[in-house]
Structures are given as structure tokens and as C-alpha cells.
Design a protein around this nucleic acid. Sequence first.
DNA 1: GCATACATTAAAGTATGCATTGATCTGAGG
DNA 2: CCTCAGATCAATGCATACTTTAATGTATGC
Lengths: 230, 230
Amino acid sequence: MGQTEGSGTRSKGLSQTQRAVHELRHLILTNRLPAGSNHLESELAAQLGMSRTPVREATLVLETQGLLKVRPRRGVQISSLSAKDMEEIYQVLTELESLAAELVALSGPSDETLAPLEAATLDMEAAIAAEDREAWAAADERFHRELVSLAGNGRISAIVSAFNDQVSRARALTLYIRPLPEESLRDHRALLDALRTGDAAAARDVHRTHRIKAQHMMVDLLRRHGFHSV
Amino acid sequence: MGQTEGSGTRSKGLSQTQRAVHELRHLILTNRLPAGSNHLESELAAQLGMSRTPVREATLVLETQGLLKVRPRRGVQISSLSAKDMEEIYQVLTELESLAAELVALSGPSDETLAPLEAATLDMEAAIAAEDREAWAAADERFHRELVSLAGNGRISAIVSAFNDQVSRARALTLYIRPLPEESLRDHRALLDALRTGDAAAARDVHRTHRIKAQHMMVDLLRRHGFHSV
DNA sequence: GCATACATTAAAGTATGCATTGATCTGAGG
DNA sequence: CCTCAGATCAATGCATACTTTAATGTATGC
């Protein structure tokens, strides 16, 4: 199993360490390094076509982001999420995204500023009509990312992004189990209204409720289906 | 190549990398590596009596925690906080600690569970009476850390801890400029009451307000005194 | 006199080899 | 048959040597 590179060797100015971070993250998010699996530094290095050093550095970074754990002598272990982990992460996501919604509302956004959110909402609508869950998930993610980004707090963006990475596999797993997210669409509409009118308290509250629903659904699904490594 | 261990060789089971993380963090927090200063990997390595490898690994970790930035060819630069950074960080701290307060209230804590918070509050009281600001700061930090820890969400603890590290120097700087924190003491009492009675909404709100006050004070002080690198 | 291209060099980035360490296996004793 | 001590060995931790790269200084041409 050699260079699973695909696209040839374009070094593109990225350092090997950065490449390792990105590729490993990608491999994890796409489940090609499945949750719970163990991998030696040297294996990963061979797989990525580099020496152990940049791989080591990458694993340290990814460990701080919660995607894996470095366990001396047992290889790096890809993180798996228990229902408890899920709950912890969603609590933080709920909180920080609600804050983001509040901040956006407080900033008195123009219609132009809100355009990406509108667009994402329209896409979600279309996706639901077409019962295209993948498309819905993509639009939903765009909506949330854009919302957080509009809040203008880089720290929030960084944390939310890292945590979303951690739960992305679980989302993918549950995407076809859960009901079509029509309610979610209504929530987004309500949030948009609150943002437009600059109603910060409502924005926060709507989004908070929205997120808490998602959180309960995810945790319940995981518990119910007995997923222990997601 | 010998162990150029300045302070005696107590390896204590820690890896060099971990030692580097801890020592560098300590050097930064105590301002011996001042905000804004630049340092070559090799200098730091020499200073810590180890090779560049563990130092590199440590800087990568500390970078993800926001304590420094690795700038190729220009050395690692110790982070300095602008008022904007301060605001971003405090927004997150406010949000997550308030959530923590809510969670603790929801858990219906026993008096025994709350004992550490009580103790910290008493210490703060004594410190204020004695006008001992250092002691007050220490007790205050204990209170906040314990509160977050009681919430039982490891992710919150990790984020709050990392962010507190980032603002600790600024806190130290302003400790003697700001008014004696008597109001802060009242806030803590109110929070304790809410926790005892299990009033989650009140707990969240009291702490949120408490934190927002602190945030404004810090940001104002920094702006007013024109600190640009803290 | 200024700008630009080239040389120089020092620091980061990477690979590799060696030392350390802890997991696992084996064998002896209970 | 089970437990535990010690040996074995492989993976990591760390250092070091080498490569690449970009900043700086110099010289040349305009």
C-alpha cells in the first residue's frame, strides 16, 4: 500500500508537517483512519511518503485538536466519541454558536452581510425538497460556519471548527437515520429574522434552542444505536 | 553531548517535550519570555538544556494554545494581546464559565461539593479585608477553576484553562491598577446561593454578568493605559 | 545614487540513527 | 493452572547531521 497520493507530488509550498496535518485530518474525517484504530508513526510516515519527524509533529497538533491520542508504544489512536464526549462537545458548540449569533445581531448586519446565510438557507430548502441529505448537510455546515465567521471572533471560529471536525463523522453516520430536518430549516429562518432586526437576545435564544435540539438528537441516536466508537 | 542541566538532573518521568512545554509556558507566564520577544529554536533549546527537537514539538503545542507564534526564520514570537484579543478571549471565557455555572446548578450540588467554592470565597473575603491583592487573585482563580471543574465537562476546562493562561499576564498587570474587587466578592456570593438552590438560570446569569463586568474592566484598562503588548 | 540581481549564510525543515523504555512473551515457582 | 519475574524486542524519544529556504549584504548596472 504505497503512496495513496492520487494527485502526484505537488509540494505547493506547504511544509511536510503541514501536509501531514492536513492529510491525516482528511484521512480521519473520511474514515480512512477509522475511529479507535491504532497506527504507528512509521506506518503513517510511510503512507504519507515522509519521515517520522513531520508525522510526529502533526500528531502532536492533531492531538491538541482532539482528533487522536498519542499513546507511547501503542501507536496513535484515532479518537472515538462516546455519548459523553458528544454531549461535552455539543454543549460547547451550542454555547459558542449562540454567542456568535448574538454578536452578529449586535453588529447590525446589512442584508449584504447576511447574504451568505440567506443563500445557505435557500440551498437547505432546495435540498430538503429534493430529499438530498448530503446537500442539506453541506448547506447546513456552510450556514453555521458563515454565522460564526460573521461574529468576528477568531477564537470562537477556531474552537467551533475543531469541534465540528470531531463530530463530523458522527453527523455523517446519523445523516440517514434521523428525520428530514425541516424543523431545522424553520430555526434558521427564525434566526435570520432575528439577525435582520438586530434582536440579539432572540438570535441567541433561537440558536441556542436549535443547537440543543440537535444535541439531544445526536446523543439520543448514539445511545439508542449503541455506537461506542464514532 | 552532555546533559547541560542547569538545575540538577531530575527527569521525574517527564519527557523532554513535556518538560519543554511546561517550562516554556512557565517562562512565558512569568514574563521571563516577554510578550513580543523573539527566540530561536536553538536558543531555547540551549536554555532548556535539550536539543531542538523537543523544543520544536513544544512550540507547536504552545502555538495551538495561543501562547506563541512560530514564524519561520524569525524565531518563535511570544504572543502579545491587543485589546481586541482580550475581548475575544473574555467573550469565550464569559460564555463557557456561565455555562459551567449553569451545569453545576443543574447537577444539584451538595454542600460538600460546593465546599471548595465556599473556601475560596472566604479566602477572597479575608484577602480583601487585608487588602492583599495577590492573595485575592489566587483565591479568585481557585474559585473559577473549581467552578469549571465541577461542571464536569473536560473540554470546557481545557479551553478555559488555556485562555486563562493567555490573559494571566494582563491580569497581573492590572491587579494593582483596578479597584479592590469587593463587587466581585458579592457576585461570587450570589453565584454560590444560586448553585445551592439549584437555580440554573440565575447561576448562569449572575456569572455571566460577573464576567462581563470583568471583561469591560480589563479591556478598558488596557485601552486606557495603552498597553499594546501584554 | 538607487535599484536589482546574486552570493552568503544562518535558521528552519527533514531525515536518520541511536538510546531508552515499556509491552509482551517465556519460564519458573507456587 | 495461574502468577510473577526477567528477558526480549520493537516503537518511541531524542539528538544530530544534512537539506532547503529565505533574509541580508554586496556588487554591479542603470
